[in-house]
Write a protein that binds this DNA or RNA. Structure first.
Lengths: 342, 342
DNA sequence: CCTTGCAATGACAACGCTATCATCGCACAA
DNA sequence: TTGTGCGATGATAGCGTTGTCATTGCAAGG
């Protein structure tokens, strides 16, 4: 005696291929083919089926489809934060790259926590994505192993300073730090200050900082003073920390910031305190955010190309959906934006 | 004659429940129960199975799981834009609300295009989400019908000025517009200007504008001049449009902006042009962004609670995963932030 | 008139998991 | 001793789609 109605109670009267097929007097296969635009179909049949689709309000079940075809059409995206505007900008690039394909991105946020990243990656992989785009190159061993063993494409974006699992798309933050120092030295500045992020969590800010500092030393110069803080950077913090630095080291000629948010805060401090920029104090940021460019004095900074990073990351995957033999690197570069503050 | 190896060629040596079960000498059911922490399991069995899981690096396939259990654990999120910082902030709230549940959000962006929204919603529904959180209350008829007929919970967020399909979470933009006008009138301003968004696309900005304007008229006053533009708002546009308004209507005492981005641009213009704020010209924004509060003069504005909107939207769903009889509304409110510019 | 070829469609197992029901021991009460 | 009850586990049919192979009908070629 078969158990006919096993789970029938739960079937929320969902419309399935079979319902459409029955109404259109064709087989399930034909309906499936039509829905996917795949295979040869007579025009008459197609229109008859589409009519049934509309009549029933049929929406194909992608979950079942993904299981059957062993292809989820999902792209996992892992970013550390949503409150830092640069990551939504990368997401825009990813969306742009994905537009036109029938792939969906699934976004997870780690809050800059590598253990959380591990959990998040495990959960993402459970959805059998066709690729994972993940910010940064620093992961726990377990995370790295999972990503590697998944066999799917893994695109690490934002930085290209570390050897990638599969592919890295972004810019060299070491090069950016070096370029910042060289640029400011070339413009004649000799007494440097640093304001920004001091923790160990944002590795990219740290790489820029260290490369910057090392380059100064190599030029026979050094960092006169610095005010650092942990946690999320913000305009408010930039303002407060700049005030602190100015009070403590009035001799500093130019302040380099961990990013534009902080630098904008610095500029606000100068505006409030009547400090002439750049005569009394020059300011230099990182990122090239819109807000910096719209300031009374356009912020001197380095432009990273967040949108492009996201877009190129997706393109790298679309161009080669299967993992290549050799890891690769795509350098999206950066440009110094002269501005008016340094 | 059975076709034994039908799709076997494609099986990328994936580890399945059966592999784990075989190694641990138990049935598939037992492995499944253990992975889901569901049902009674002897400690010895559990540890033996977990060992096998680790040994094989087993990752459950959520696609198969969702199909079998008819529950995808997915929450669809639809927002118009990622470049407007307010939406990432809502996403943060959504993430916060989802933390601890094993649900995943899937985000889609419409670019403020209702036809694109329709496509996006159709694609989302194909993933059989447990709920859809969608920004705004304005949709095409087809979108509304799809959402309604899906039977799942539909939480429309950001605004509560229209009757919801199922539930709305946000603030009344009409009330915000009225409050803006009343507040400024009460502070003695009589000659008003408006700078901002003029198109029909951002319905919420339009609602605020119209309520603001109507309230002025009701108070026997009016809008002396306005400079509007289409497309994405930005600090740069705010600056340029404020300059235009100042040049054209020097008598205006206070400018109301469609949002803080534009107002910050206005403040930058005043700083550059040496216009005293608020003595010569007062400024009033909308949103209560961090940037506004960190400005040399904290921007007077209305604080919407984006994070809270996202969080409450998720909570509404989690509290009642099935659609209630009656549509509901959750008002997350707003507060006037006095600031120093009006 | 009988192939041959191909466009069009159908039949059905498989995808990996879970819900349901069945079963098996074993402690404990009668 | 024989049930009884329950904790623990097993067997198996779906879940809704797609990939593979089979079949059908008909036009063109011989």
């Amino acid at each position: 005696m078969a158990r006919q109605r096993q789970r029938l109670s739960e079937r929320k009267s969902k419309v399935t291929v079979s319902d459409v097929a029955r109404l259109a007097q064709v087989s399930d296969s034909t309906v499936s083919r039509i829905m996917r635009n795949h295979g040869l179909i007579a025009d008459a049949t197609r229109s008859r089926v589409m009519e049934a689709v509309r009549a029933l309000g049929y929406v194909p079940n992608r979950i079942a489809g993904s299981l059957a075809s062993l292809d989820s059409q999902l792209v996992g995206v892992v970013i550390p934060s949503l409150s830092n505007i640069v990551f939504p900008e990368v997401l825009q690039g990813i969306n742009a790259g994905l537009a036109g394909t029938n792939r969906q991105s699934v976004i997870s946020v780690t809050d800059y926590d590598l253990d959380k990243e591990e959990v998040v990656v495990r959960n993402l992989l459970a959805w059998q994505p066709a690729a994972v785009l993940i910010a940064g190159s620093t992961h726990t061993d377990a995370t790295r192993k999972m990503l590697d063993q998944s066999g799917i494409r893994i695109i690490e974006f934002m930085e290209i300073d570390h050897p990638p699992i599969d592919m890295a798309v972004g810019l060299s933050h070491v090069a950016a730090g070096v370029a910042t120092a060289r640029h400011l030295v070339a413009r004649g500045y000799r007494r440097f200050g640093y304001v920004g992020y001091g923790g160990l969590i944002d590795i990219r800010a740290r790489m820029r900082y260290e490369a910057f500092r090392r380059t100064l030393v190599e030029a026979g110069l050094g960092l006169e003073d610095e005010v650092v803080s942990d946690g999320q950077t913000s305009v408010g913090k930039g303002k407060a920390q700049t005030a602190e630095l100015c009070a403590r080291s009035p001799g500093v000629e130019v302040v380099v910031y961990s990013n534009d948010d902080m630098a904008v805060g610095g500029l606000f401090h100068c505006l409030s305190a009547g400090i002439g920029v750049p005569e009394d104090l020059a300011l230099f940021g990182f990122n090239g955010l819109d807000i910096g460019r719209a300031m009374p004095k356009p912020l001197s900074t380095i432009r990273s190309n967040r949108f492009k990073i996201g877009q190129r990351a997706v393109e790298a995957f679309l161009e080669s959906p299967t993992r290549p033999e050799q890891p690769g690197i795509i350098d999206t570069g950066f440009e110094i934006f002269e501005g008016a503050t340094a």
